[in-house]
Design a protein around this nucleic acid. Structure first.
Lengths: 226, 226
DNA sequence: CGACACTTTGATGCGCGTCAACCTCAGTGG
DNA sequence: CCACTGAGGTTGACGCGCATCAAAGTGTCG
């Protein structure tokens, strides 16, 4: 399944994970990655799959979500180019607990568990980079959990708009998710998102254009919503 | 602040983090830890503090929580002997985002950021152990977030009871938290906890004894609550 | 034994999920 | 080029779960 394209090179050079390595080191890594391509809507992995490789997004976009017992979907992460996914742990778990689905045409590089563990032994900087990334994810998840259990939907949506805008450094932007997915991300329903956005518009905090476009007019007011 | 007790030894030998090290290695680590003691109710660290050391619980119990903007408390972790806390990242963050409070008389060993990073360079197994731990925390948090946004309080409480019972390998046990803290852990209020526990009792799933004691009668029924 | 924190119980209200109908729009085939 | 279709989005009506407020009960530690 390994292909003779430049994609392996992209994977390795793109990812912050391998930042500190020399060119030669990166080449040895390139030789052990495997590649796959996925179409929008295609499932990349499912809960229950055995977890035997680290996946790196070479291009495209992947949504990672869990299903609750009642069948409800919870969007956990949205992975973009350069992000990676190893179920938070190529270490502890052996079975996946979440689903991955391509939202765009997506190319993925995989490194086998054993190969990756060898790499970590050989290049300690990889572990440090991984710890960094895990630390960030943990902090963000802690904040999300706190928000999910203590704040209103209104507040969570406002916060999401402000953060997304800040992340893109644009006050006008297109929502990166379908409302349905945004709803599961925030732990609510599309209907409620619709209503709250309308409320925000009525209060003059935002304006909505066609095609999921949003303009933030008063981010301070949004940030103050409790 | 370093003290000549055997506590430093305990810290290092207790923690899974340092499992694979030789006795000699552990002794060098013991020489660089600092120690502190705290009384129940005492605050160990606060949000906004600078984050410059890894903390290991030598004995006692610590609750780690965040405050939402509306002032509500969210219990994130309950740390027991052998657990550690470095705000999920001695790496990325420089400022703490959570609070730590001793619930029992508690002894804590600290390792300075720079010392710890040196240790990780020297002993790669420490990084691997850390990655393991972070992986576990991430998985658990992902599950909690999913539950928080998709399931009812009833379901979350039922799940908590089952998991706690399974963790202790006892069907009769004392709740390790005050109802007030349990409430913030599950993202609800003490009143609701009271009522739901009564419901469970009425339905014959559990019985309640004095002093936070609970006996699980039908864990299957509890697990089925959606 | 008194004071204070925790817990329980009841009454009330509101946020948001649910269900259903309608609207919009992009893609498809005639 | 336009009607057809189906998915995503919007809007309204309604009800339930749980937070909130208040007050009485219980435990615990000095």
């Amino acid at each position: 399944m390994t292909m003779p394209t430049g994609l392996a090179h992209e994977c390795v050079s793109l990812v912050p994970l391998f930042n500190q390595l020399t060119h030669a080191d990166k080449e040895t890594i390139e030789s052990i990655v495997h590649q796959h391509h996925y179409q929008p809507g295609e499932t990349i992995f499912s809960a229950g799959d055995s977890l035997d490789s680290l996946m790196i997004i070479a291009s495209g976009q992947v949504k990672v979500y869990q299903l609750a017992e009642n069948g409800k979907e919870q969007l956990l992460y949205l992975l973009k180019t350069g992000d990676f996914e190893g179920e938070s742990a190529l270490f502890s778990q052996t079975t996946r607990q979440s689903f991955g689905e391509a939202l765009l045409p997506t190319a993925i590089c995989q490194i086998e568990r054993s190969d990756f563990q060898m790499l970590m032994q050989q290049y300690p900087s990889i572990s440090i980079n991984l710890l960094n990334e895990f630390g960030h994810r943990l902090s963000k998840l802690e904040k999300r959990t706190t928000q999910a259990t203590t704040s209103s939907i209104e507040s969570r949506l406002a916060d999401y708009l402000v953060e997304t805008s800040a992340g893109l450094k644009e006050t006008t932007f297109k929502l990166p998710l379908k409302k349905k997915d945004l709803a599961t991300y925030l732990g609510t329903t599309p209907e409620t998102i619709s209503r709250k956005l309308k409320d925000f518009e009525d209060q003059g905090f935002i304006t909505q254009g066609g095609g999921k476009k949003v303009t933030i007019l008063d981010s301070d007011a949004l940030a103050l919503i409790s």
